[in-house]
Write a protein that binds this DNA or RNA. Structure first.
Length: 570
RNA sequence: GCCCUCGUAGCUCAGUGGAUAGAGCGCCUGCCUCCGGAGCAGGAAGUCACAGGUUCGAAUCCUGUCGAGGGCACCA
């Protein structure tokens, strides 16, 4: 539709130039936009204002010259010049009706665009330490990353979802020591719990399972052997748990990448990925030695200060591993890499960008900073610390409010906006929750289709897709759809490809929830004013069923991109 | 001190340099003999934090001030 409107303007302007009414060396780029106020029409362009100077014309006169040549076109219902020189275009009912056919032909592929052009993009998100349950912020980033991946796929990208497992470092040791301490307690031993240890109840649970499976044989074992055994067991268990919880919200990763693997010598050359990457940076002249440590000269690439890669004691920093990890990503052939990080990591952005630039991949990294979630319960702040053990986990939240409501709430805010999530409120308001408003529109359409098929409106045995195929006539008289609520519904359906484009370009899934609510509202308004199933008017019924089913498809598609179910009955 | 994000209706928040700044919730008034009332229609409600600047035009871009949150390791 955008292209249609732009073409109409472009052709009219070219005709005006040919006729000598407008003197311009070449036809300028024509941009059309949705006017903010719908009473101004479907599309508007400022091309007359932009070109007025070059044409040495008053912008309104120029606009008139273009507008005159557009009126009368079968796709144009009205065109007018407004304000300082806007050209407002109202599309004809005929042009809008074509959208319905477009939707039904495309099915769940409606709104697909080719912005990505088949390029490969990796979205890395969540990437929690495998030492305990995820907090609510992880849930938000999971919803965000997964929905971004869905939108990018719809926009023509080949997408992979990746989870980076931080399974190396002191927090893993702390984790093992914590489990070991609980195990010894369960065995009745006197033991001092590690000062920095994790105190969550899940630690005791894991210890109890080990005790049940393997008995007390580890109580008198040598501590380092005990801890390394416990580490592997507990790690595997937590990882499986993370995967399970994420799957429960519909988030599945293609790759789980272990940080440890970066420190394992390759069988080919006996060198670790970290060492190989550091050698590469060294060769390119990005490093220097100072006070026994190896530094990355990141200030040369926009960072505030230089960063240590290899410490004076010979060990590598987390940053060094992260550079090796990113080198690996690009080695795997991604044209673009998107990382979703929590706001508490934003200080890390510049050095990572510097590192990616040093690797020769400047401009191929996008870091999205997801603001944190402040969790409340009845107005009272809930602390989120793994250490205290007193926290509402992401899993708890899913259990309480359900995956649909959780995902929808997480995505409704823009990414760079901190989110206050009150659990009690979310549950109390469930009937006013916008997710139900959208889902209800979908369920309502399904009820209409059941009704049209002669079934009970609540008959769950009816196959909606098959019913739609059987009932909706390809040659329905769509020209009958010309009332205001019908036109408004078709306009809203026509806007979907633009929404996908913006959501993909801005990496902003909140555009999708907004659109879903607008589309649902257009449908509810249509429903209130336009009776669909009318035995006395089979032509109108056929046309409206066609429109209703197109709406069903579009609603299911946008909800699919959000990652929320489209129920046939509620 | 430096860096990042934010400041828009009573509340929670949208807003792509464009026209009279929008939505939901809450509040007030109406609408089912009728395909699902988890719905629809209408009303009240604004110094876009503040001050400059850029330009035909700024909630939007730039600078500064004030306020809120987060971050500034040879930690991970």
């Amino acid at each position: 539709m955008r292209e249609l409107a732009a073409t109409l303007v472009r052709d009219a302007l070219a005709a005006a130039i040919d006729a000598g009414d407008v003197v311009l060396a070449d036809v300028p780029e024509v941009r059309v936009e949705h006017p903010r106020d719908p009473s101004h029409g479907d599309w508007a362009t400022n091309v007359a204002m932009v070109s007025a100077k070059a044409a040495a014309m008053n912008p309104r006169q120029l606009a008139e010259a273009v507008a005159t040549r557009m009126s009368g076109h079968p796709d144009v219902a009205a065109v007018e010049v407004a304000g300082p020189g806007f050209i407002n275009i109202r599309l004809s009912a005929n042009a809008l009706q074509r959208v319905l056919t477009e939707v039904r032909l495309a099915g769940s592929g409606y709104g697909r665009i080719d912005e990505g052009g088949g390029r490969r993009v990796q979205v890395e998100f969540v990437s929690a330490n495998p030492v305990g349950p995820m907090h609510v912020g992880h849930g938000r980033w999971a919803a965000l990353g997964d929905s971004m991946a869905r939108v990018l796929a719809h926009a023509g990208w080949l997408v992979e979802r990746e989870f980076y497992i931080n399974d190396q470092g002191v927090q893993m040791d702390t984790f093992a020591k914590s489990v070991a301490a609980r195990y010894l307690e369960l065995c009745g031993r006197e033991v001092e719990f590690p000062e920095e240890g994790y105190r969550g109840a899940y630690i005791t649970e894991i210890a109890r399972e080990i005790l049940q499976d393997e008995g007390e044989k580890w109580a008198d074992a040598e501590p380092s052997g005990r801890e390394s055994h416990f580490l592997e067991r507990a790690y595997a268990q937590v990882l499986a748990h993370l995967e399970h919880v994420l799957h429960g919200m519909g988030v599945d990763f293609d790759v789980w990448f272990s940080e440890r693997s970066l420190h394992v010598a390759s069988s080919a050359d006996g060198v670790t990925a970290v060492e190989r990457t550091l050698a590469r940076l060294k060769e390119a002249g990005h490093t220097y030695e100072h006070e026994g440590a190896l530094w990355f000269r990141s200030t040369a690439l926009g960072d505030d200060k230089d960063r240590v890669l290899k410490k004076a004691d010979g060990s590598y920093t987390y940053f060094a591993a992260d550079i090796a990890y990113h080198a690996d990503k690009y080695d795997r052939g991604f044209d673009r890499v998107i990382n979703i990080w929590g706001a508490d990591h934003h200080g890390y952005v510049k050095r990572m960008e510097a590192a990616v630039a040093a690797l020769g991949h400047e401009g191929k990294l996008t870091i999205v900073i997801g603001q944190l979630v402040n969790l409340f319960r009845a107005g009272e702040v809930v602390r989120m610390s793994k250490r205290t053990g007193e926290m509402v986990t992401f899993e708890d939240l899913l259990d309480e409010v359900g995956p649909d409501a959780a995902r929808y709430f997480f995505l409704r805010r823009s990414t760079d906006q901190a989110l206050d999530f009150d659990i009690v409120l979310a549950k109390e308001q469930s009937s006013d929750n916008p997710v139900y408003y959208v889902q209800y529109a979908h369920a309502r359409i399904c009820a209409i289709l059941r009704k049209a098929a002669g079934a009970d409106t609540a008959d769950t045995s009816v196959d909606i897709a098959a019913t739609a195929t059987a009932l909706v006539a390809g040659d329905a008289p769509l020209h009958l759809l010309a009332s205001e609520p019908e036109l408004a519904l078709m306009r809203k359906l026509a806007a979907f490809p633009d929404v996908v484009e913006v959501a993909a370009r801005q990496l902003a899934p909140n555009k999708l929830t907004r659109y879903a609510e607008e589309l649902a509202a257009s449908f509810h308004q249509f429903y209130t004013q336009c009776r669909v199933v009318d035995p006395d008017d089979t032509d109108l019924t056929a046309a409206r069923l066609y429109a209703v089913d197109a709406t069903r498809i579009a609603l299911a598609t946008v909800l699919g991109l959000v990652g929320v179910s489209a129920p046939e009955r509620m």
